[in-house]
Design a protein around this nucleic acid. Structure first.
Lengths: 254, 254
DNA sequence: GGGTTAAGGTCAATGGCGTTGGCATAAGGC
DNA sequence: GCCTTATGCCAACGCCATTGACCTTAACCC
């Protein structure tokens, strides 16, 4: 049993749980975000989800094919919230910057959920909507399609990759964070200048800079690079398109 | 019991397991890489590790504080291998490019292990060695310390973030990969031009570009940006240093 | 509004997991 | 060759995801 999952649109009978609530995919996703925030990125379990919803853990399987399926739904929710909190102005650079920061912020608003989902492609509607939007902005600049696609690729992967990385730091439990910071104090800050001259010389700058995300900086690099391509389409061939570029040929499945 | 872990350097008595092998941290890390490759990024368990080493699962706790501690050791191993396969030429741009690609390649050589470790800071010696090396290259260009640290930050986070993201695609099991590709076919490729004109118009380019990593392209952007800063230190203030830059202020713990 | 049907909630069970306390034993210092 | 203790092994605990069987009741038809 419990093998067939009825898609959300086709649901009709809504039977309340023992606790009295009427379930839905939406309920599960929202409960999952709460559980994740409370119990950490590894603390999302069917049992806890059941408790949070006042339902039996196995009820999950009436709505999702498994924990993995639920995970993808959570990712799509975060992506959708990013797009909801964004509006087009018509200026490609402003729009792309705002959208990138919105994606990054949306994931970081739920760090534990972000860790779980940011490196996965859901293929769900709200993720596709973001892809369509980014491609639209880039093609609207007048970039040729191959160039627009290359830039889209760099933009979306960079946004998700940094969302995942930065979320990892925020998602640490208090205890793990204490250990992390203790490690920083006990190792990096104490390295002798003799063996590690460069770290020792910049320890102050490192301590100030490292607790922040590098995403805004690299996003600006991408925008600058794209702007330069628009101004001088031929003079500065894109790094991504240079056939001499090393290491570009290995395959990623996605 | 099993609470005190003797550090590797202090070990003296080496008692063989029932299988006859003599254990060490190194043995555990290598066995973990094998288990991960064979059973996927979620397939690393104490029991399997025991089987792989011909030892009891609980033996792990004589060498590591827990699975988490082992995970950090695995990450440090990957970082160390990256540095081992790299040599300085004295040309900062060549060296930084080679080191970035070496880190990326080292993680992608063990995708399942990379998924587990790439977004974590180990604080172990070989990771610190990479940090020292990168800072040395950048300070050697003549960049001022704050600028060198900013660039180091962007470089190392970008490298790790893309390592994690790209590894995620490579680490999928055959079945999960089949599902992923089926999804690509069943959704993106079939989106009607009416609702998703930009995806529809670029479907061919997307299919060609997306299976590759965007890391080499964004690495070139960073190198280009840094070169421009060296040529015109005042004319083009770094995006990362611009006080007007939006969204740069939220905190990451690291 | 009564009958039928199956969606969807619950229960119990399975086999896996990390981790720990107690115990046995062999390595190494003397 | 004795003593200490590091280190390996065993059994057990309380979690976990997932499933098959059961049962309740909402929704639809007339």
């Amino acid at each position: 049993m419990a093998k067939q999952v009825v898609p959300e649109g086709a649901r009709r009978r809504r039977r309340p749980t023992q606790g009295g609530t009427v379930l839905s995919e939406e309920h599960f996703v929202r409960a999952a975000l709460r559980v994740l925030r409370e119990h950490g990125s590894t603390g999302l379990t069917a049992r806890r989800l059941g408790t949070a919803l006042g339902a039996d853990p196995s009820t999950l399987y009436r709505y999702f094919a498994g924990m993995d399926d639920l995970t993808r739904a959570i990712g799509d929710e975060l992506m959708g919230r990013a797009l909801d909190g964004w509006e087009a102005t018509g200026d490609w650079r402003v729009d792309l910057r705002a959208l990138g920061l919105a994606i990054h912020a949306s994931y970081l608003a739920h760090p534990q959920a972000a860790v779980l989902t940011a490196s996965r492609v859901s293929g769900r509607p709200r993720e596709i909507a973001v892809d369509e939007t980014v491609l639209g902005i880039l093609r609207g600049t007048g970039l040729a399609d191959p160039e627009a696609v290359r830039t889209y690729h760099a933009f979306i992967d960079q946004s998700l990759a940094f969302a995942a990385l930065d979320a990892g730091s925020l998602a640490l439990t208090d205890q793990a964070r204490a250990e992390d910071e203790a490690m920083w104090q006990s190792t990096y800050a104490r390295l002798p200048a003799a063996s590690h001259p460069h770290i020792a010389a910049t320890a102050g700058h490192l301590a100030r800079r490292m607790p922040h995300s590098a995403y805004p900086a690299v996003l600006e690099m991408l925008l600058e690079h794209t702007a330069a391509r628009l101004e001088h389409p031929r003079e500065r061939p894109s790094a991504a398109s240079s056939p001499a570029e090393p290491g570009a040929s290995f395959t990623r499945r996605r």
